[in-house]
Write a protein that binds this DNA or RNA. Sequence first.
DNA 1: GATGAATGAGGATTCATTCAT
DNA 2: CATGAATGAATCCTCATTCAT
Lengths: 200, 200, 200, 200
Amino acid sequence: MTKRQEQALKTKEKILKEAAKMVAENGVDNLNVDALTERCEVAKGTFYTYFKHKEDIVFEICRDLFAQIEERMQQMTGKNIVEKLSYYFDEFMKEVERYGVNITRAWIRGVIDPKNAPENFDSKKWQYDVEMLENILKNAVKDKELKKNTPVELLTHIIISQLYGMMTVWCMSDCEFEPKEWTKKFCDVQLKAILEKYLV
Amino acid sequence: MTKRQEQALKTKEKILKEAAKMVAENGVDNLNVDALTERCEVAKGTFYTYFKHKEDIVFEICRDLFAQIEERMQQMTGKNIVEKLSYYFDEFMKEVERYGVNITRAWIRGVIDPKNAPENFDSKKWQYDVEMLENILKNAVKDKELKKNTPVELLTHIIISQLYGMMTVWCMSDCEFEPKEWTKKFCDVQLKAILEKYLV
Amino acid sequence: MTKRQEQALKTKEKILKEAAKMVAENGVDNLNVDALTERCEVAKGTFYTYFKHKEDIVFEICRDLFAQIEERMQQMTGKNIVEKLSYYFDEFMKEVERYGVNITRAWIRGVIDPKNAPENFDSKKWQYDVEMLENILKNAVKDKELKKNTPVELLTHIIISQLYGMMTVWCMSDCEFEPKEWTKKFCDVQLKAILEKYLV
Amino acid sequence: MTKRQEQALKTKEKILKEAAKMVAENGVDNLNVDALTERCEVAKGTFYTYFKHKEDIVFEICRDLFAQIEERMQQMTGKNIVEKLSYYFDEFMKEVERYGVNITRAWIRGVIDPKNAPENFDSKKWQYDVEMLENILKNAVKDKELKKNTPVELLTHIIISQLYGMMTVWCMSDCEFEPKEWTKKFCDVQLKAILEKYLV
DNA sequence: GATGAATGAGGATTCATTCAT
DNA sequence: CATGAATGAATCCTCATTCAT
């Protein structure tokens, strides 16, 4: 990577980071290119060297956010499936909390409406999470932690809707409760109940 | 009611109905006063005779939707708590499905962000549902269906987040699954598991 | 017409007139909505109550210009065909000169590229003139001024291309010559030559 | 010529050729440096190594087009003036047709507005053609084909406006007629009529 | 000569909302 | 109550051009 390319990457990251900050502060509806570029101390046009549409940056912010979750999931070896899922929930909500309600709101809004997705966001966004979870469960079946007849798809959707339900309610309640605490309760009470009959 | 008042009521309902139709067709983002009033064959100003802010109408649409659920809940006497909640879920999702994804999307978006609420929408919107559920559970305690030590608030939130999770995921997946079918599975599997230990 | 409608019409005409003036002064490329509305002392948005796109106003300006020519043509009774056409040319160029090169440039530019036409400009613009000329010639045939076998379409196109050629060259030369003087020469020399063999 | 210079020439020609293609395909309005350089697989900056302003390339394209006409005119020896002019018209329109409407539109647009000319395009563009025609006529006078009192300038302008009129109408009609066929009719009917009285 | 990141002037357009009639 | 002309804040986005590497 040449120095110029490095500089360019830095610029993009600066914009991305500042945008995330702004969304976190005031919500997506108040993110505007003018203010953003001004805060980044770059020209307005610079934004468009990196993002084709304003929308795109919101997606990248959210994708960044959830990409980090994915990364952490790699380090889940040596845990059983319930622990893994609990860990998944926990990390998910930790990250969500770290980024704040406004970004979570943006994420939900984006994810709710597939038609809003920018062109380069090829797959349906929600499948992003679905696939990850599905893989965790599939591997558990392969590793003989879960019975062969486990309805993987069904469970995936049940769990996903719990996860998104918590996020949605968290936003609705304007952070009235502690996500992590809730997650724990959810996992303790429900996860077991759901998985119990499929455990080997 | 004078004739004038009658006419006025008719006008308001026409606007409300047409707005609901438009949101259902194209989503909230594409609802605008110009097109709405044109379709209603009234002047643009007329809209503002009935709604102080454009936002208000979206809320009324959604409120209408969920008001109907509340109505039906009155007829739940003679059922036990699990049946009641199952019935609640079922009716809820039926109504949701009837109105369509776009209105559900509007609802989630509205509900997610308390700051978007119009002034005259005094309470936090999400408490709307919370309260109803809480009442169902409280009554169950009062009626000695549930133990006295039942953590009503906790259960309410768990159930609510399930409900919203399903709605959210339904929107995310662009109606890829049948809400009512899912509801049934949720109720059968989870609701029982959650409530079991509190049943008298 | 109510007073409000009258006022509205006045506003539109004011915008139209001022726009024509601005185009005349600085050319189409320098017509911008901001400056226009400021000069009209109306809000920027007012422009868009009357014109859906900026382009549209240019067309209206040009259409207005040539509509006036059409009007005058009504008063050509009692002249023979050569006189009529000479009169047509003459009036055409007079009007063109009156409006100035810049508007003529706008007209040619607009007319040259059918794809640029705004939606509400239904027919191909150039047919506007073609039809008028065609009618003049057809009537001359009907009135037995011209022979029955006169190739009306052919002549129409020859004459039209002369007319537009003069306009084009006038713009090219940046008004180096007198349109009316040229018109006269064209008519005297060519028109007769062209029509001669078809005269009854 | 060093290898570097050779390479440079190749690059310039590639840009020029691709630009011509792009104008022909989508019109001048859709020619932009970004897309052009991308198609040429060179950096955006490279464009500016060869062209000071974007406009310049359009002029070069058009100049190229008409330069070829000039070349062919050299081979007109041994023809009389009417034949020469007919040949000129014919070749002109052939070339025009070969390049297509969009480039012709670009040419007219460019030529119509002298203020648009790039700085290094010193003379008024339309004089380009004027001079060539004028020379043909002057030579005819010198060669005693035309009378001494022939109003060369006048005739030049008449002929030029015919030529441009045909081009303009061709663009207006979106290629509805065959340029060459028309040219023939024009020449047969009008050219003779115009020149007749000046022939020796 | 070639590169491509950065620039920033420039302009169009939308639409909720008001208010005089 | 109904009207609809007028408002103007709010922003996005394009793209020719420069210049340090």
